[in-house]
Write a protein that binds this DNA or RNA. Structure first.
Length: 590
RNA sequence: GCAUCCAUAGCUCAGCUGGAUAGAGCAACGGUUUUCUAAACCGUAGGUCAUAGGUUCGAAUCCUAUUGGGUGUACCA
């Protein structure tokens, strides 16, 4: 439609002798109730046309009909100029653009982007909140790749700290040498079990201390368990061999467990970073900031930054004893990541409870004069809520990722079997299909919602297989595949551009043609959700088309048959490719 | 208190840089299968876009205030 904008600019120049920015011209789809396919809003032009909106639209309409061959007619409704465009224009577009095997592939834009996501703690298994993070991180990565960027996916593992020591200590005390092998538990679940035990015992100690007259706060500080955990952390930092080897052993169990969950989720990483390696970073950056006068030192030796002029608070960046806080290592890690990859943009996929932290982090890096600071972006997403309230991992009231996956696959199995369409599938094919459908439902459900919005997850009712869902889209794809094979479709056969198009066929071409623009728009806003909703539109449109025309397989007019198959083929390609970006597989049959 | 995000149909969500009569799905009700997969399609019903102002030819969209909710405001990570 770019040629249309160019022509409108020329027309306005000729009609009213006015130069107009292209951005002032908005071309949109004509609403169904009116004649035409493209609509130009003329209100912005009346200022210089000095005529009524209707008259202005008429002038422009006449100009376009006279000067553009593809525009055959126009009508004016209020300030809206509706243009009728020849079918052959759309057919040419379809033939030369959409039918190309590489339709939807966007050439490289030369940008390097890092996406950091997942970032789990190694003291407990992954839960539903992590699932949202992982799916978002993975699909945003794929989205940016599809838009022509070079993407590095990294996972910064939080493998040290007091919370890790809690699991370790509890295992030491009550674990009786239990291992994943001896217990049959997945490694991350085993470790998580001891994290919960720690919390339970810790709470008991607090209650006991409160009975002796201590306040809640004192009791929390003085409980023997927490003191032991702190001592363990200190020993760890001092390189105590016993603690380190226990740490390695238990972390190993967790990684084995995570590997399984990641595989099931279909996510992967180009590089892992570990906080046990990065937690001392950032002190150089602090020195740098002091030199540049960005930071200042208080009498006690602690280092701060004053952000009150930016509407934020004073923020500690280094303790008086010289040890790091959270933001210290994030400053150092940001520098290290840039030194490693030299990326133009860096996306942090982290929940919205850390909005403030990242605001501060990016602001500090900018004040330090880091040229790359403007390429940093916090992809913030809302929490996943349950009808019963919040998930609390310490209390074990979470929706566990592995349980959820298993449940989804089981539901897919049950629903598929009830439909009785898989009788001629092998056992292996069945298992693979149930997995694809179950995960498709889960992934689509989580991804179709705008990241920054909170998401309500009702295990009993939320996951559906009808309507705007993953399986609906998968089903549409499978249906097209079945159609193409029954009809003996060959790709790459062009149909004469004079062929008659139905209203739905025309709508489909227009919708499908938007695919590359949809990818670009979704990439720009880091939002898989908009792409997900677009794919749904495509699938819905196909189903409508499929129902309102007679069976294609039996169509005797070869041109018509080939054209309808072409249309189906492009639809299937767009669905498959779009779903791939979302990290969702589409089966060939279901 | 301050900061920040959110509020659209009974429920879950769309609604692009302001554009025409605000759209889907689920749930409810009715219909469609001797023809390519009915996990589909068609129809009915369902709305004061939280409230009140403002800007504009035009506001769900932008601005201000108010209400309700989430999150943050740690020398935790």
């Amino acid at each position: 439609m770019d040629f249309m904008i160019t022509e409108v600019v020329k027309g306005l120049k000729q009609l009213y002798n006015q130069d107009v920015e292209e951005s002032l011209i908005s071309i949109q789809d004509t609403r169904k109730e009116f004649e035409g396919q493209a609509t130009i809003v003329v209100f912005p032009f009346v200022r210089f046309s000095k005529k009524s909106p209707e008259q202005t639209a008429n002038d422009l309409g006449e100009y376009l009909v006279a000067n553009l061959e593809v525009v055959t007619a126009f009508n004016v409704v209020k300030g809206f100029l509706n243009l009728s465009i020849t079918n052959s224009y759309w057919m040419d577009l379809f033939n030369t653009d959409l039918l190309r095997p590489d339709f939807g592939k966007i050439p490289s834009n030369g940008k390097k982007v890092m996406v950091e996501y997942s970032s789990p703690n190694t003291n407990k298994p992954l839960h539903l909140g992590h699932v949202r993070n992982n799916l978002l991180g993975y699909s945003v990565s794929e989205l940016l790749k599809a838009n022509g960027s070079e993407v590095y996916k990294v996972n910064l593992v939080n493998d040290r700290g007091i919370h890790i020591c809690k699991s370790m200590l509890a295992w030491q005390k009550w674990g009786e040498q239990e291992t994943p092998e001896s217990s049959g538990l997945k490694g991350d679940h085993l470790v998580g079990k001891y994290y919960v035990i720690f919390d339970k015992e810790y709470k008991k100690e607090i209650e006991a201390l409160k009975l002796t007259g201590q306040t809640e706060e004192e009791a929390k500080k003085n409980a023997p368990l927490i003191r032991e955990a702190q001592a363990m952390l200190l020993a760890w930092e001092n390189g105590d061999e016993g603690v380190i080897s226990l740490w390695k052993r238990m972390n190993g169990w967790v990684y084995d467990g995570f590997a399984v969950t990641y595989k099931n989720l279909g996510v992967d990483f180009d590089k892992y970073y570990y906080e046990s390696n990065t937690y001392l970073l950032g002190k150089d950056t602090v020195d740098e900031g002091l030199e540049k006068g960005v930071f200042f030192k208080k009498e006690d030796g602690s280092v701060w930054i004053d952000l009150t002029a930016d509407g934020l608070d004073q923020k500690l960046v280094l303790r008086a004893d010289g040890t790091s806080v959270y933001i210290t290592q994030d400053l150092g890690t940001a520098q290290m990541k840039f030194d490693d990859f030299g990326m133009d943009e860096s996306i942090y996929v982290v929940g919205n409870e850390q909005d403030y932290h990242f605001k501060v982090l990016f602001l500090i890096l900018d004040k330090l004069g880091k040229s790359w600071a403007k390429g940093l972006y916090h992809l913030s997403y809302g929490m996943v809520d349950l009808p019963s309230g919040k998930m609390k991992s310490r209390e074990g009231t979470v929706v566990d990722a592995d349980d959820l996956i298993a449940e989804m696959v089981a539901t897919a199995k049950q629903k598929t079997e009830a439909l009785g369409k898989v009788d001629n599938f092998s056992e292996e094919e069945k298992e693979s299909l149930y997995y694809k459908i179950g995960m498709g439902a889960l992934k689509y459900f989580l991804l179709k919602v705008e990241p920054k919005k909170r998401l309500l997850f009702d295990p009993a009712e939320s996951i559906d297989f009808q309507g705007n869902t993953g399986p609906f889209i998968q089903y549409t794809h499978a249906r097209i595949k079945s159609l193409l094979s029954k009809a003996g479709f060959t790709a790459g056969v062009l149909v004469d551009n004079q062929i008659e198009l139905s209203a739905t066929e025309l709508e489909m071409i227009i919708l499908l043609a938007k695919y590359p623009a949809e990818i670009a728009a979704a990439a720009k806003t880091f939002s898989p959700a908009s792409l997900a909703n677009y794919i749904y539109e495509v699938a819905k449109m196909f189903n409508k088309f499929y129902h309102e025309i007679p069976p294609i397989v039996k169509e005797e007019n070869e041109q018509l048959k080939q054209h309808r198959l072409n249309l189906s083929w492009v639809t299937a390609n767009v669905i498959k490719d779009g779903m791939r970006i979302l990290g969702i597989e589409v089966p060939e049959r279901m």
